[in-house]
């Protein structure tokens, strides 16, 4: 896209992909600050506590590793989808988008099971700061995964309807930026949670 395209489009036309990508990156920058601040708050709260997890409280479940693997896999399929889109391989694009969406759902299922397991072990958000911080951090991330699944589903449907070409596939590009970001956030969050407890 050239600059003149960006300047001359109508107000209801989709923004040129270069503008859209910059916009997505800025959104990711804003969300990075949100997660960085949340993790910093967690580390400060954690550093004040003598025992973590508090006595009688369960350790974080090992099944968090499953969530991590699912998240990593979804990032791989997302990257496969965006490469396929750029090369104009429509079939690979559909497969990649569908797999990414399904893995995203699977991640949420896995996280929900983790929460259920902890609640069953009497760790609730109201129980103590250990519980509160865990549910807040993972909940904040899960909320952003939900927010990512909606556009992911829309783009997948559009891919199946053959709306994208090698030249025009802005939705896939935007999804890729956002989804990889969620992956990185989860990896950092997972590492901080595991190392601190």
């Amino acid at each position: 896209m050239t600059r003149s395209d960006a300047r001359n489009g109508g107000r209801d036309d989709p923004a040129p992909v270069e503008s859209g990508r910059l916009g997505m990156r800025l959104l990711v920058l804003a969300l990075s600050m949100l997660f960085a601040a949340s993790l910093l708050a967690y580390v400060l709260i954690r550093s004040r506590a003598a025992v973590w997890p508090p006595a009688g409280m369960p350790r974080l479940p090992g099944t968090l590793w499953i969530s991590t693997l699912v998240m990593l896999a979804s990032s791989v399929t997302m990257q496969a989808a965006v490469r396929a889109a750029r090369a104009g391989r429509e079939r690979a694009l559909r497969t990649g988008m569908l797999l990414t969406t399904l893995l995203g759902v699977l991640f949420l299922v896995s996280q929900t099971l983790n929460w259920f397991a902890l609640v069953a072990a009497h760790l609730t958000a109201k129980a103590n700061l250990y519980g509160f911080t865990f549910y807040t951090l993972t909940g904040l991330h899960a909320a952003h995964v939900v927010g990512g699944l909606i556009p992911l589903a829309v783009v997948t449907v559009r891919a199946f309807r053959g709306r994208y070409s090698a030249e025009f596939h802005p939705g896939v590009e935007y999804c890729a930026i956002y989804w990889h970001f969620l992956d990185v956030v989860w990896l950092v969050m997972f590492a901080v949670l595991m190392l601190s407890s």
């Binding site: 600050m33 949100l34 509160f132």
Partner: peptide, 23 residues
């Protein structure tokens, strides 16, 4: 873009403390 999200999480924590009684 960079500072407002930090206010966002701060206010969320404030709401959580009021609503849940978490210290």
């Amino acid at each position: 873009i960079m500072a407002t999200p930090v206010l966002g999480i701060t206010l969320l924590l404030l709401i959580a403390e009021r609503a849940l009684g978490i210290g």
